[in-house]
Nucleic acid binder design. Structure first.
Lengths: 404, 404
DNA sequence: CGGATATAGTTCGAACCGAAAACTAATTAC
DNA sequence: GTAATTAGTTTTCGGTTCGAACTATATCCG
């Protein structure tokens, strides 16, 4: 039960009814397609006449398309309805400190084209290069209508206007990125935090049952981000700042974090932390020989995963320590939210056979509730950030209409 | 933007429109009363004719009543509309391990009658005694319509049916409390966790601006509970278990908590923790004399507060330590949710002049965001649990209707 | 006193919507 | 070819908001 926001509501009119029922039908088609009008009446509880009217409207709007005839033991054959996947193309951009990915997706979140580039050094250059690639997308598909652009950020955008972006890992000053991209591409642009995008990706495309109304995504890379979906919707907090559990202190003291505090979760459980652990393991008394110490510094986390996959003891030890701390933070999320699902996103999921059991054990030991939260690595979805940012744009059409 | 739950939705009909607009009007009256129909059209954006029709209906339902005429420089005088506060009486019950409070409240959350009793030793006795007191409420006000009963629990009720209750501090087996109370009183009963109730109390009666859509309540007593309101609505998690941040570990080791783990926030920052700190302070080398040690154990937290108020050094030290840990946990909540407001509920707020600054300093130091979360002691509202449980019942009428 | 003006509130027809029932279309079994 | 069955459309009706016209009430000012 939501409190009505008396500063920001819209009254209902006759069209509101149609809007609501349209979205219900659209979602039913999305879930059950291909589906006949008759089945829609059964699933929705609407009258057959109403379903006819709504589907006629949705066919006219090109949200749906008619397909083949169905087979039945007797009676008239139903005409199947499908989502018109190519009704709208959505461009997703995943902006990360070193690399930027782009994708063009259709209504079902299927990627139609992909591209990537080293993240340019300035926002001007970024806007220029990205909009150029988008133009090449659009040129190849002149018939397609383009719905908008979503950008996944390694940071937070302020909520109402999205004029300023706070992204410490990015060297730029990210002022007015939204407006600049909109000018350059002539498409509406929305910014979103990467962890929130991952949460949306799992929530809309993760193949979970309808029972899942609370889902937490944890992105593990250089830092740790948390995206919260509670009561079936994204939680953004007062100014879009919710989700910084990565900067909750696990210990009173401890290594200094980039945020200025000590002992943050992410200094213990991020990829960078694992690299530190590896170096420590190599330097430990057990590894006596001096020339080993020279190798102690690994270039990146990929390399560590590779070593761990080959059975390198130090790498495995580093991973286990990382997993232990990952579990500690996840236990906090389990206690605090008791969500149906927690999804872990990041390179570390590639070694989930090793990491998962450690994490589960720690969570089981340290979390309070009798909650039955499932902790799972991010599904097969490649590029969860991209897919999530596309989900964010799609929400506008498939989400519940904002009422009262 | 909420995802539509395709297993649990209702399609819209013409009446849906009226339902939505009715609630908007009802809330506008609640906020601005006394208010004329003409002002309602201005605030709502509805047509005058529509407002007339809606208010006529609400007057007929006795949700509203007409009041005096307003004064205007020219033109016909408006007739003021008011909430018909006595339309419905709501019984709130705050069940705590040692004492149970009851109150009868009207639509505006004003208490019309109060009562309390030592919490009985068995659920049977509880139901018997409580329903007897409720009957005495109803007898004194035979004209009043009774809306329902809300019960604030020192624990959690399972979500759909509320058949089982998990309340470790309560010695009972709380099976089917809801159904038993309903049978005994013939009124609908709803159970809710105490921290959630406090959050609702502040959210609906706390006098915050409309901007506050994210509010966290922290109850500090024997344990620590957290109630979450995010996106303007209560967060209950998968099975009503969300909010157990009190059982998040602040340290890897530490004192054993009643939940079985070690180092939980609540073993460091609850009232019981402060009593422990007091005992430690008394036993410390600084307090050499042996006869002091005998006094080291205080009967209860009230007493500690009293001593602190009188300037007792050990008591103040204990409070400061408690405040420090309180701040650590609150920093976690600020980082994680960046809510507009965090409300602290409990006896400790009586010494907020002393505790508040310590808490604020720790939160400022240890929380990540640039968030501007206000941390405040629970407002003047006496009995926030009671008031909150009444808010919970009222929500059904004043909350946004569940659509799609 | 009476007309102009201003504000509050009501009445009535048009348009939109879903519900319900009647109707048309298509298909199979016998 | 007729009955049965299922899909889908058309029609009528009641509920709702909107917008315009209308009534009611009050003040100002000549």
């Amino acid at each position: 039960m939501r409190k009505i926001d008396l500063n920001n509501f819209r009254v209902a009119t006759s069209e509101t009814v149609r809007d609501i029922n349209c979205r219900i039908v659209l979602n039913l088609v999305r879930k059950h397609q291909p589906i006949s009008r008759a089945d829609l009446t059964r699933h929705s509880g609407l009258q057959r006449s109403t379903v006819s009217a709504i589907t006629e409207q949705l066919l006219g709007n090109r949200w749906l398309r008619e397909g083949a005839l169905g087979q039945l033991p007797r009676g008239r054959k139903p005409t199947f309805l499908h989502l018109n996947e190519d009704r709208a193309g959505i461009v997703g951009i995943s902006l990360r400190p070193t690399i930027t990915h782009l994708a063009l997706a259709n209504l079902e979140g299927r990627f139609l084209a992909e591209d990537s580039l080293p993240t340019p050094a300035t926002p001007e250059e970024f806007v220029k290069q990205v909009s150029q690639r988008i133009r090449s997308f659009t040129k190849e598909r002149p018939h397609m209508a383009y719905e908008g652009i979503g950008v996944s950020l390694p940071g937070r955008a302020d909520l109402p206007g999205q004029r300023f972006v706070f992204a410490p890992n990015l060297a730029w000053k990210l002022e007015d990125l939204k407006a600049r991209l909109e000018r350059a591409t002539n498409l509406p642009v929305d910014l979103e935090n990467a962890a929130n995008a991952c949460a949306l990706s799992e929530f809309w495309f993760g193949g979970h049952t309808e029972q899942v109304r609370n889902l937490v995504a944890v992105t593990v890379s250089e830092g740790i981000g948390v995206g919260l979906i509670l009561n079936g919707q994204l939680v953004r907090g007062a100014a879009g700042l919710a989700g910084e559990f990565g900067h909750v202190a696990l210990t009173e003291e401890g290594p200094i974090c980039s945020c200025g505090n000590q002992g943050c979760w992410e200094v213990y459980a991020s990829n960078s932390a694992a690299l530190r652990y590896y170096a420590e393991a190599k330097a430990s008394p057990r590894n006596k020989s001096a020339h080993h110490k020279k190798q102690a510094e690994l270039a990146n986390f990929e390399h560590l995963l590779q070593l761990a996959g080959q059975g390198d003891a130090s790498a495995l030890e580093a991973l286990d320590r990382m997993a232990n701390f990952l579990g500690q933070g996840l236990a906090m999320l389990v206690s605090g939210f008791a969500p149906e699902v927690i999804v872990v996103v990041g390179e570390v999921t590639r070694m989930w056979d090793r990491v998962g059991p450690v994490v589960s054990a720690v969570v089981k030991q340290r979390s309070f509730t009798h909650a039955t939260t499932r902790i799972m690595p991010c599904g097969l979805a490649p590029q969860p950030r991209l897919r999530g940012i596309i989900a964010m744009v799609l929400q506008k059409h498939f989400g519940a209409p904002t009422i009262a």
